[in-house]
Amino acid sequence: MTETTTPKRGVPLWAQITIWVFLAGLLVLVGVTLGKRQQGTVQPGDAIPDFTLPLFSGYEYEGKSEVKLSDFRGRVVVLNFWASWCKPCEQEAAELEEAWLFYEPSGEVMFLGADYVDTEPEARSYLKKFSITYPNGPDMGTKISQMFRIRGVPETYFIDQNGALYYVKVGPFTSVNEIKTLVEQKLP
């Protein structure tokens, strides 16, 4: 056989190391991504990193054109992701506003609306249509929604006084009471 004339050489060590490192890197990358996809949205108990939500003019909060999550330490924060093109969002818009009006005087609860992948003119007409008054702003660069790993809209995140998530609502609320019950969990 001709093969015997050539000396038998194995794969050089550097090549073996490169191959295994590459393979391990690929598997880790895919594995971590898979893990991220599987875990779904951020989970109750997770501390929510601070983020900044710019606000639509006319929907500012105490005159400020942007708010940070950390501004509301000591309060329950209800963060609602919505979009004007989202039909199910319309089902809960009035309820959210009603709940906001109910809690606003106490100063214990904050409602924030993050407008996901939307255009400003359409978003404004939506806010107007449902007479929404709580601070609302665009999710610039879809950064906040990616941070929460939202699956779609509407989704609502309940964050407690210490900045930790305690409940995730996927899909629209069916009643004001549903919202109130969830908020009350963390109120004294």
């Binding site: 979009a83 004007s84 093109w85 992948v117 939307d118 255009t119 400003e120 003119p121 359409e122």
Partner: peptide, 21 residues
């Protein structure tokens, strides 16, 4: 909203709004 589909042919409402923008 419709990943990997160019905006000019994406049929969703969100994309229609983008085109109007």
């Amino acid at each position: 909203v419709c990943e990997n589909t160019p905006l000019d042919v994406c049929p969703t409402e969100a994309c229609r709004q983008w085109r109007e923008l």
